[in-house]
């Protein structure tokens, strides 16, 4: 099979799968098997998209901003603390029990506290995104730093590296695969948590868009909001995959 045919097949097969599912979905509703009030057909959702495009985009932009601010800040702080805690054994010993208790707490349960602290504005949502990004980055960075192959440190010491040079030139780059795992996990959790936080806040972002639409029984808009989140998620994972393989870890062997 030629490369071109393989490529066409890689696009064509999934696309026909999607089209087939949409067709079945449409047929089930058109023939009255499911009431369109509960599950509107794809064509109705497409129509809702054309009618509410501006509203959808502005809501999506708010969600993107909330995720971006929370993610960048959470990851930066998580990685920085992760390096410190991973590098200094005593600090790790002192802080690990606290992290073990805090990190499993469901992030959404922080929301009431954030609303009390920051008020009814955008900050509680961003704070949730921050927490969502912070813990995976922190824990993965600690694990990455603590599990650096000792043989590389030995090489660096033998070649005359100081402790600071070992941290900067060996430990941090060697921990990067773990840090990248943390960054990927963070983006996934951010994406799960932020719309929920927006729903709790009621009126903001795509979470708010979905919640308000459900209040009005506009199920077409609810599904439109969900699909938008799905497409955004897919796009973000793809972008992250590119950043990971081209910027963060270009040295990793290419998978066959």
């Amino acid at each position: 099979m030629t490369l071109r045919r393989i490529r066409i097949q890689q696009w064509l097969v999934p696309l026909s799968g999607i089209l087939f599912c949409l067709f079945i979905w449409e047929v089930l509703i058109r023939f009255g098997f499911i009431r369109s009030l509960f599950l509107p057909p794809p064509t109705a959702i497409l129509f809702a998209l054309t009618k509410n495009f501006g509203y959808l985009i502005s809501s999506a932009a708010v969600t993107v901003r909330d995720i971006a601010v929370g993610y960048v800040a959470g990851c930066a702080v998580g990685i920085a603390f992760g390096i410190l805690i991973g590098y200094y054994r005593l600090l790790n010993l002192a802080i690990s029990p606290l992290l073990l208790i805090i990190s499993p707490i469901p992030i959404v349960t922080f929301m009431p506290l954030f609303i009390i602290w920051f008020g009814l504005n955008i900050l509680p949502v961003i704070a949730c995104a921050f927490i969502a990004a912070f813990f995976p980055c922190l824990l993965n960075t600690i694990s990455g730093v603590r599990n650096v192959d000792y043989r590389w440190i030995e090489v660096a010491k033998n070649l005359g590296a100081t402790n600071y040079q070992i941290l900067q030139k060996i430990i941090i780059p060697a921990a990067l695969p773990h840090i990248a795992d943390g960054l990927r996990l963070s983006i996934q959790i951010c994406f799960l948590i932020t719309p929920v936080a927006e729903m709790i806040m009621g009126q903001v972002g795509l979470g708010g868009f979905i919640w308000r639409s459900a209040d009005l029984f506009k199920t077409d808009l609810v599904i439109l909001g969900q699909l938008t989140l799905g497409v955004m998620g897919l796009f973000l994972y793809r972008v992250f995959g590119w950043v990971e393989s081209h910027i963060l870890l270009p040295w990793r062997p290419v998978k066959a």
Partner: peptide, 10 residues
Amino acid sequence: WQEHRLFPWR
């Protein structure tokens, strides 16, 4: 060293 121990990220 016994293994080449080149840094894989460089």
